[in-house]
C-alpha cells in the first residue's frame, strides 16, 4: 500500500522501514545521541502551509517511535535536524541522491546537531535516511 508523503501513515511506514533495515540496525547499534528530525520545508504550491517534520526516536539501532509534526518549533528539542525542500526529499525517497553527498552539496541542510558525531556514524546516518526508499510513496506533485 502506498502512502502519501508527508503524512502520519508515511511516517509510521518509514519507522517500520528503519527497523527492517539490517544495515541500520548494525551500524546504528552504538547510536545513543538522540532523535533525528527530517523536515520538509513549507511549500504552499503543494499545500504544505508550514514546515513538516518527521521525528524518529532512534536509539541503539532501533527506531522506538516516529511522529509527524508541523513547524520548526516542534523540532526545537530534537538533537539532530535535517531540512530540505520537498523536491529534494522526493529524490531521497526515490533513491536518486545519496544523503551524505546531498549534505555536502547543500541540498540537505543539517540545521541542528553535532556534525562530528554524525560523521562518526556516517554509515548509519546514510542507512537511516535511505530506509525511506523502501516506503511505497505517492507524492503531492504527481
Amino acid at each position: 500500500m502506498s502512502h502519501s508523503f508527508p503524512s502520519e501513515a508515511w511516517t509510521a511506514a518509514f519507522a517500520d522501514a528503519v527497523n527492517a533495515n539490517e544495515v541500520y540496525r548494525t551500524h546504528g547499534k552504538p547510536w545513543t545521541h538522540g532523535a533525528v528530525a527530517m523536515v520538509c520545508s513549507k511549500d504552499e504550491s503543494l499545500g504544505l502551509d508550514d514546515d513538516v517534520g518527521m521525528i524518529l526516536d532512534v536509539h541503539e539501532g532501533v527506531c522506538r517511535g516516529a511522529s509527524l509534526v508541523r513547524g520548526m518549533d516542534a523540532v526545537a528539542e530534537t538533537p539532530f535536524v535535517i531540512v530540505a525542500p520537498y523536491a529534494r526529499w522526493k529524490q531521497v525517497i526515490r533513491g536518486e541522491v545519496d544523503p551524505i553527498k546531498a549534505m555536502m552539496e547543500g541540498k540537505l541542510k543539517m540545521t541542528k546537531g553535532h556534525l562530528p558525531t554524525m560523521l562518526r556514524f556516517v554509515e548509519s546516518s546514510r542507512a537511516l535516511v535511505t530506509s525511506a526508499t523502501a516506503v511505497p510513496t505517492t507524492f503531492l506533485d504527481e
Binding site: M103, M104, E105, G106, L115, P116, L119
Partner: peptide, 19 residues
C-alpha cells in the same frame, strides 16, 4: 555560505575544536 561543503567543513572545525 552557498557551498554546502564549505559550511560543513566550517561546522566540523568549530564543533570538533569545541569537543
Amino acid at each position: 555560505e552557498n557551498n554546502g561543503y564549505a559550511t560543513m567543513v566550517a561546522q566540523l572545525l568549530r564543533q570538533g575544536l569545541d569537543e
